[in-house]
Design a protein around this nucleic acid. Structure first.
Lengths: 112, 112
DNA sequence: TTGACATACATAAGTTTCTTATGTATCATT
DNA sequence: AATGATACATAAGAAACTTATGTATGTCAA
């Protein structure tokens, strides 16, 4: 598990990335997918995810479709057109950021 | 410039990394170094840096030495022994995290 | 058959870590 | 003498979480 400050800030981008690969996913599914893909190193809590999904929907990046599974309800999220381009931007920004951070971490000792 | 949520959470690790390469640095120097190294893409504000430095010092990871430059004061920070091992841990955690995030971003569309 | 755990949604209070604003002061340049 | 860079500092407010709690269904083992 990574310290939470690190993961903080990447949640929405992760969600947008997953939805750009999966057409539609529901909240709980997203938490499990991330957990699986990262071997448990990133665990999205529901307290973080649901408000985040609601915010993305409010911003018009996601639409929802509610399904009844037996007596339970599932809310499937998918990218809107706006969401697709936002996803691309966010993903590319994060990608760029990762490279910059990689560069910083690879610095060699300054001769002093 | 990256959106601030992204950079959030990496500040202390960046500081520890720089100090593990430079023996001693003062606050303003750190802000300039990061700006230079990242071509302005990461700009650490003083409102973020100074409290963060104070916290690291409080946790026993940094020690300070005050220098007089003309009539001005500079506060040089350097890693303590505890700071050195904390730096290694933080850097390796961030490095691991970057790899995990890279993996997530490289995912291909799931056949659906 | 009941207790534990997984599935599935949701929200609210509290915390951390920033941003933004402000303050003080020195130094160099125009 | 005014501007911008250098150099420290702190405080109020915002953002994005964590932690706790609530509701409810489904599954499985003892």
């Amino acid at each position: 598990m990574y310290s939470s400050e690190l993961v903080k800030g990447t949640l929405k981008t992760i969600v947008l990335k997953l939805l750009s690969e999966h057409k539609e996913m529901y909240g709980y599914e997203i938490t499990q997918k991330v957990k699986d893909l990262t071997a448990g190193k990133i665990q999205i809590t529901e307290g973080a995810l649901y408000p985040s999904l609601h915010a993305l929907e409010n911003d018009g990046l996601l639409t929802t479709e509610t399904m009844n599974i037996g007596k339970r309800v599932r809310k499937y999220y998918s990218l809107t057109k706006k969401g697709k381009s936002a996803a691309e931007e966010k993903i590319s920004e994060l990608s760029d950021f990762l490279q910059t951070m990689r560069f910083l971490l690879d610095l060699k000792p300054a001769q002093e």
